[in-house]
């Protein structure tokens, strides 16, 4: 039997949301067969001491003049970082600084303190990251499998998607039919309500939260919480310049996007322009 993955989990400047998310992992007990928490701030673990680990998980941002476990936070992280085989920056604060301070490898989009040591870092942004994402990294590492990473050291299996993929409002996005008021069941949230799904890397709408839903599915825009720019202001509003959204879906240029949306809008999808229950397919000669 393979030996368990020795994990040290440190709470830096955090709201503990990432720990909470981890505790929501549905198969958490199966993970305990594979990993051994040498230290965790919440879960039962050994007394803390600086020692080697297979994986150092950092939850939270770096900050000066902040003490943790009898050390300054910066000193603590530095000592553990170099004794760890791999480091998982868990959550947007740890990856990019997020709400609280500086990230491990990045400060927003700039290079951060440990950028030079990036070959041992795995970044898992999200506020919080989905429990399945955390489990994915732990499972892969405990089985000694290689995790393919993108240019921001995020696992490609998770972050090649956008949170727009799988949203139940996709049809409305295609035909450029947007909900104008908060709380509607139908209509896309992109144009009026600030949804950042089409340019946010994440698999939220593919995996779903609590296996049930996601923000856009229930009518809250995607806040882009996995991105370096998080948190932005005015999360319920789409920034537009003369009516043109300032951010557009990944992979296309603005000219193509505007052309396509103009055409989609002009074609005026009658079914989606009214409430779904009001549409009668006999109204229209379909096909």
């Amino acid at each position: 039997m393979r030996s368990k993955l020795k994990v040290i989990w440190i709470d830096a400047v955090t709201c503990y949301g990432c720990s909470h998310s981890f505790l929501n992992y549905k198969e958490i007990s199966s993970l305990f067969d594979k990993i051994d928490f040498k230290y965790h701030p919440v879960l039962p673990s050994e007394n803390f001491e600086i020692k080697e680990s297979d994986l150092l998980i950092i939850e939270g941002a770096l900050k000066n003049n902040y003490s943790r476990l009898g050390f300054s936070l910066n000193e603590l992280i530095s000592k553990l970082f170099f004794k760890a085989k791999k480091v998982l920056a868990l959550g947007t604060c740890t990856v990019y600084g997020g709400m609280f301070g500086n990230g491990i490898m990045f400060n927003k989009e700039e290079k951060g303190k440990y950028y030079k040591c990036r070959e041992k870092i795995i970044n898992l942004p999200g506020c919080p990251p989905h429990p399945d994402w955390i489990a994915y990294v732990l499972n892969m590492l405990s089985e000694n499998k290689k995790i393919a990473l993108d240019e921001f050291n995020r696992p490609q299996d998770i972050f090649s998607y956008t949170s727009h993929a799988g949203c139940t409002r996709n049809e409305y996005f295609e035909w450029k039919i947007d909900s104008q008021t908060f709380g509607t069941k139908e209509g896309c949230l992109f144009y009026y309500q600030g949804c950042q799904g089409p340019f946010t890397h994440s698999s939220c709408n593919k995996l779903l939260w609590n296996e049930v839903s996601s923000k856009p599915r229930v009518g809250t825009p995607c806040f882009g919480c996995t991105e370096p720019s998080f948190p932005k202001h005015n999360l319920f509003n789409t920034e537009t310049f003369m009516g043109i959204p300032s951010n557009i879906p990944l992979g296309v240029n603005k000219r193509s996007y505007l052309t396509l949306s103009g055409i989609a809008k002009s074609l005026n999808n009658e079914r989606l322009n009214k409430k779904l229950i009001d549409y009668n397919c006999r109204d229209k000669n379909e096909n």
């Binding site: 310049f241 003369m242 009516g243 043109i244 603005k254 000219r255 505007l258 052309t259 103009g262 055409i263 809008k265 002009s266 074609l267 005026n268």
Partner: peptide
Amino acid sequence: GMLCVSAFVTEIMLFF
């Protein structure tokens, strides 16, 4: 709608 004039309208949008 914009179907046949989109090449022109799109450029005006980009200008604005």
